[in-house]
Computed example of a mutant assay.
Amino acid sequence: MALALLAAPALPHPAWAADNPLQPSPAWDDMRSSVIGTETEPPVDAAVLELEAPMRADNPALVPIRITQPPGAPRIDKLALVIDANPAPVAGEFTFGPATGPLDLEVRVRVNAYSDVRAIATLDDGRQVMAGRFVKASGGCAAPAGSGADARKDIGAMRWKSEPQGDRAIGTLMIRHPNFSGLQRDQVTLLDIPAEFVQTVELKQGDELLMTMQGGISISENPVFRLGYAPNGQPVTAHAEDTEGRAWDESFPQAGG
């Protein structure tokens, strides 16, 4: 496994901004029905769902997003992560197993222009709720791959780390993959690099589902998913597939490593 992957840090924890609420978004108004299946705007309710993001991103290609619920909140079955101004706005569509409630999920995304970043959750009682922030960033989808010429080295290699947190655990899945957006250029040939990205992730402990994701070009290079869950003592397995038809599977002891 690549040293770069072995040394990959967990998601950064900046001083999350609390004064960058969602802004009016004609793009969201146009796509709302196709994304969530209804023209009805889901309520924003911090007592059920919260999204944290920096007001101004240090790196538009690696913007940390954290989606959380307070204790006792209704469990989330499904969640769509949307970046309104991106060329492909739906960054990922997630499903979650019972062990992940209340939800605590972090992921890194690309932000291509000043944009609302929103999470629309479907609760286990069928209701939808929304949370989001306005993020000032630009150029994230066209930013050169940070790995340069070695972007495909050890492609598909995965690492899992799990750390106890009270009666729960925080697991971090790291996947080695360039996640090319289709908007980047080869820095040597100056030719466009075709889109090539992880589109499916499935995470389980034993037979119990933790998370699935159907992703797009807005998930950052070398995807990292940090997820809270209730451990059941079983090994954790990860399955990933990309747009080139490649598939990878790994199994890890419950304690991670």
Results as ranks from 00 to 15, higher is better:
residue 246 R to Q: 09
residue 222 N to V: 10
residue 125 D to W: 11
residue 79 L to C: 11
residue 229 Y to R: 03
residue 182 G to A: 01
residue 184 Q to F: 04
residue 110 R to Y: 01
residue 74 P to N: 07
residue 236 V to Y: 10
residue 74 P to Y: 13
residue 14 P to E: 00
residue 81 L to I: 12
residue 160 W to R: 00
residue 82 V to S: 01
residue 4 A to N: 07
residue 234 Q to R: 14
residue 180 F to Q: 02
residue 118 R to Q: 15
residue 250 E to I: 00
residue 109 V to M: 03
residue 256 G to V: 06
residue 46 A to K: 13
residue 11 L to Y: 00
residue 117 V to N: 08
residue 37 G to A: 10
residue 134 F to C: 02
residue 135 V to T: 08
residue 164 P to W: 02
residue 125 D to Y: 10
residue 64 P to R: 00
residue 70 P to C: 06
residue 115 S to V: 04
residue 225 F to Q: 00
residue 214 Q to W: 04
residue 148 G to W: 02
residue 192 D to E: 08
residue 185 R to A: 12
residue 159 R to H: 04
residue 22 L to I: 12
residue 34 S to W: 00
residue 139 G to P: 08
residue 50 E to L: 12
residue 38 T to D: 05
residue 165 Q to S: 11
residue 102 P to M: 01
residue 172 T to A: 10
residue 168 R to Q: 07
residue 138 S to L: 06
residue 249 D to T: 12
residue 54 P to L: 01
residue 24 P to W: 07
residue 124 D to A: 12
residue 198 V to E: 02
residue 176 R to H: 03
residue 200 T to M: 13
residue 60 P to T: 06
residue 237 T to G: 06
residue 82 V to R: 04
residue 117 V to Q: 04
residue 191 L to W: 05
residue 29 D to F: 03
residue 220 S to D: 14
residue 138 S to F: 06
residue 69 Q to M: 07
residue 94 F to P: 09
residue 34 S to N: 08
residue 85 A to F: 01
residue 86 N to F: 03
residue 24 P to M: 03
residue 41 E to V: 15
residue 127 R to M: 06
residue 223 P to L: 09
residue 103 L to V: 06
residue 9 P to I: 05
residue 104 D to R: 10
residue 212 T to K: 09
residue 100 T to K: 02
residue 91 A to Q: 02
residue 103 L to Q: 02
residue 117 V to E: 02
residue 18 A to Q: 11
residue 86 N to T: 10
residue 142 A to P: 03
residue 232 N to L: 08
residue 250 E to Q: 14
residue 244 E to N: 12
residue 25 S to W: 07
residue 200 T to Y: 14
residue 43 P to D: 05
residue 215 G to D: 04
residue 8 A to E: 11
residue 75 R to E: 12
residue 251 S to Q: 12
residue 173 L to T: 03
residue 131 A to S: 14
residue 6 L to G: 13
residue 237 T to R: 08
residue 45 D to W: 08
residue 23 Q to Y: 01
residue 73 A to D: 08
residue 131 A to L: 05
residue 244 E to V: 04
residue 65 I to A: 08
residue 203 L to P: 04
residue 240 A to H: 00
residue 147 S to F: 10
residue 46 A to P: 13
residue 135 V to L: 09
residue 9 P to F: 01
residue 122 T to V: 15
residue 68 T to E: 00
residue 4 A to F: 09
residue 26 P to Y: 00
residue 42 P to F: 09
residue 199 Q to N: 15
residue 152 R to V: 07
residue 42 P to C: 13
residue 148 G to S: 07
residue 163 E to Q: 14
residue 164 P to F: 03
residue 55 M to R: 13
residue 33 S to L: 11
residue 201 V to R: 07
residue 60 P to H: 02
residue 180 F to L: 15
residue 239 H to M: 12
residue 6 L to T: 10
residue 207 D to C: 01
residue 216 G to R: 13
residue 237 T to C: 03
residue 55 M to V: 14
residue 166 G to W: 08
residue 5 L to V: 09
residue 137 A to M: 08
residue 57 A to K: 03
residue 19 D to H: 10
residue 59 N to D: 15
residue 233 G to Y: 01
residue 57 A to Q: 07
